[in-house]
Design a protein around this nucleic acid. Structure first.
Lengths: 389, 389
DNA sequence: TAACTTTGTAAGCTTTACTGACAAATCAGC
DNA sequence: GCTGATTTGTCAGTAAAGCTTACAAAGTTA
């Protein structure tokens, strides 16, 4: 059964070490780093004093003051008055991030039939929403529709625009080139550059599930430093953040887990093989299976959902063990995911991993009132433009 | 080692940053960063000129010169004479890392019965080896034996000691506390601190498989930026490096994959459950199964090894898909792993992952002539003390 | 031989954060 | 109520790091 020829093919594909532009850092870079540190602190901690910032960063009060005053004169942060509790010493003057300093344009291209978008302030609050019919458009048509949506949102933005953030299905490079976007038939499309050129503002494009993971990490106060988001929509997408950093993958395909085999004898998948994860937990398959087998039988319904949860748990068990993640978030139709599915995922993960791995583990279904994919798109902007993660 | 007291001055770059609250960075941090950048370049690229470094880092020739001259006066790098090819302009003066600037003490505590160690130079070349009978010692006894080994190695070191690096099985914090070391019955053992105190030099301790991953990334010129090492010895350990950074996990248990279930109906495992990965590809199980079922039957032997490879492939498929890794290295007894096992792992990974994931993927069996775990221990030191990764 | 290119260094400048000192505002104790 | 302790934030001056500009040295090319 050993086939050396197969192997030799493989040895040829030696992944050249992408000797990244390991840039040296200048005093200015240093300042930018510290600036981002302050913005990050204010974003997550809310109102704090200069002295608090000095303590938490290890920088001196003097340096913090200079940075804070710079940021204040740019309008990014503002004084919030005296701290009103009673303690020894001169009362602290609180500062906080001005959530209305900029508008962020976030766009979600992950749905089948429509493109949705929103204008957000820096806190992640949605200021305006827009939606446009994407139909089954592909190629340049789809690009133009997306650009049209961006334009409407830009017009609705009440403040200067910090940047455009776009979540899309597919394989996307860090500089926003869609290498493969199957649903819209996009290949090597420089989407970020297109948006940036047309609207004269920075644009960032990321895979939908990857962006969602970043979004959870950024906007969910309760999120861990490392986490995993499973995005169930047409397919199964996955996003991973490790120690606060989004994983993109050697060829930008991180999270492309929909076609991992879970059952060699399972249903035929669109990709030509059998028993892909997508064929078991993809929402289309799931809903049609529920409709077919258990239109009114609650017990059968639960069984099907538990089977699906078990499949996901089986796939995630090695991942959770490898990365020792504690935080798994599933996003998708809540009516399907809440309950039996959710419990089955956690139960399977518990049963199939070592205690030291699953002791701190939690599995949650994302609150659908928060549009995770959109927030992820916004998080791309926040991260790239202000260093807020 | 000549004089242990002088080792306290040995923090060449910076104290290992215990990532507490995010620290601000000072001009000095900046310089340390750039210093490490130069060392990293020289480590991987060999001999280059100051101008080359300026181009690759983006810093000016002036700044590079200052840094290079500092490093040279510390003895870390040295001038290597003029570049002897013929090109326009003044010939470049090459500089290179002095591999004999320091000795690194590396210790491998992962074997069942013995502790092995080596003295390495900065290039990873082994200068001396020591081995000590660890027997079935546990607790403080085992610690003392390990310290004894460290002492012998320190005595054999021809240069000042950059640091001690230790690879051990178990769950270990970044600051070198062994939280759980089952084989030696260690709990909350501050091993790094113990070594550091006794010998007056920095010490770093890491999980064996994790360290091996870092070792491959550091010393294997051919390794990718992100890679995965599977370590088959008593159990199954796994180490992951993503974008050059070692993944440690939320509770420092990253890579504890030995007890992921691969077959719910499989053999009973020591952990009390059935069908753990360890029971299928653990070398003990594998050798005893081969001895029992296929003492002379080559076909049956291949079958067993292929089954084992398939099991590993099934477990790795979700991991490889999630992280989009291209480089999987398996280390362990080469006679078992080379051939059917290896091909089966790759074949299974190909069959069970999406093409965009497995297109660049390669699976390799580690060259056993290079003691990966030891090199990993050395890489811990190189990374923490000099910023070389 | 002259022009051009590249390398490495020197002097002076700019930026950044640090140190030390100090005023302002509050609490704690007598 | 007053004094001392504590904390906050700012100012002036200092140290360090990298940058700009200029230049000599050493080679290739026309």
């Amino acid at each position: 059964m050993t086939d050396p020829t197969e192997q030799t093919v493989n040895r040829v594909v030696a992944a050249p070490r992408t000797e990244g532009p390991r840039r040296g850092s200048t005093p200015e870079d240093n300042r930018l780093h510290n600036r981002a540190l302050i913005l990050r602190s204010l974003f997550h901690a809310g109102a704090v004093s200069r002295a608090d910032l000095a303590r938490s960063t290890g920088l001196t009060r003097t340096s913090i003051s200079a940075l804070v005053n710079d940021l204040a004169s740019e309008g990014l942060i503002s004084e919030l008055g005296l701290r009103d509790d009673s303690r020894v010493g001169k009362p602290a003057n609180l500062v906080g991030l001005r959530s209305d300093a900029y508008s962020i344009i976030a766009v979600d291209l992950s749905a089948d039939d429509r493109f949705t978008g929103a204008v957000l302030d820096l806190s992640g609050a949605i200021v305006a929403r827009e939606e446009i019919d994407g139909g089954t458009s592909t190629g340049e048509d789809a690009v133009e529709i997306a650009l049209e949506l961006c334009g409407r949102l830009a017009a609705a933005a009440p403040r200067r625009i910090l940047g455009f953030g776009v979540s899309a299905p597919g394989i996307i490079t860090p500089d926003g080139v869609v290498l493969e976007g199957v649903y819209r038939d996009w290949t090597d499309l420089p989407l970020a550059a297109r948006i940036s050129e047309r609207f004269g503002a920075p644009a960032h494009v990321g895979n939908d599930a990857n962006a969602a993971a970043l979004g959870v990490r950024t906007y969910d106060r309760d999120a861990a430093n490392s986490l995993l988001v499973v995005h169930l929509e047409h397919g199964v997408g996955l996003g991973v953040v490790i120690d606060g950093v989004l994983v993109r993958g050697e060829r930008f395909s991180a999270g492309e887990i929909g076609h991992v085999t879970v059952d060699e004898l399972g249903d035929r998948c669109g990709c030509g093989r059998r028993g892909c994860l997508e064929t078991v937990i993809g929402t289309q398959h799931l809903t049609s299976r529920l409709a077919g087998e258990a239109p009114h039988d609650v017990g059968r319904r639960d069984e099907i959902l538990e089977d699906a949860g078990r499949a996901l748990g089986q796939v995630l068990a090695p991942v959770v063990s490898t990365l020792n993640l504690n935080d798994v978030i599933v996003t998708g139709p809540a009516d399907l995911l809440t309950g039996p599915f959710e419990y089955s995922v956690l139960r399977t993960l518990r049963a199939r991993t070592f205690p030291s791995i699953h002791e701190g583990l939690r599995v949650r279904i994302a609150d659908t009132s928060r549009p995770l994919i959109l927030l992820g798109a916004a998080a791309l902007v926040l991260s790239a433009e202000l260093g807020i993660t």
